[in-house]
Amino acid sequence: MMANTLDVESLKVIVFQLADKEYAIPVNQVQGIEKTMHITRVPKTPRYVKGVINLRGVVTPIIDLRERFDLNTSGDNDSTRIIIISLDEMEVGFIVDAANDVMDIPKESIEPQPEVVGSLEEEFISGVAKVGKRLLILLHLDKVLNTLK
C-alpha cells in the first residue's frame, strides 16, 4: 500500500478518528487498542476524564479525547475504541470514534502545525501530515496529558 515510501525514512503511526478528522499517534507510544468496556466513573475529576477501567488487572484512567478537544461527541457505537498509550510511566486510555489503520508516514511529509486551525485542540497538535488525500493530525501527547495538573 505504501510502496512508494518504503525507501524513505518514515514514522509508523496508529491512525484514529475523532468526529470527522483523522489523527495519528506514533506506534511506539501505543500499548494496545481495546473495545469499550465498563468504565468506573471517578468523581471530582475534569469532565473529559471518563473514569478508570480494569485493563487486565491494572487500573487505567480513561480520557475521552472528543471531550478533551471539545468536539461534538456522537456517543459510543460499535466502532468506538480505547487506545491505550504509555508515556513517562503513565498508562492512559483514549476514547476515540474509530481506530482502524496502522500507517507509515514519510517524515518529509510531516509539516508543522498550520497557523490557524481554529479550534481548542490547537495546542495539542505537533504537526500535520499529508498522505495521499488524507490529512493526519499528529498529537502532542505530553500536552494532552499534562494540563490536568
Partner: peptide, 26 residues
C-alpha cells in the same frame, strides 16, 4: 491498586480495586 500516575490527588478517593466481576471500584 493505585489510580495510576495520571490521576493523582483525587478528592476523597484513596485508590481503587478490582471486584469479582472485573469492574473497578473506588
Amino acid at each position: 491498586k493505585a489510580l495510576g500516575n495520571y490521576l493523582t490527588n483525587v478528592f476523597a478517593i484513596s485508590g481503587a480495586t478490582i471486584l469479582g466481576n472485573g469492574k473497578v471500584a473506588l
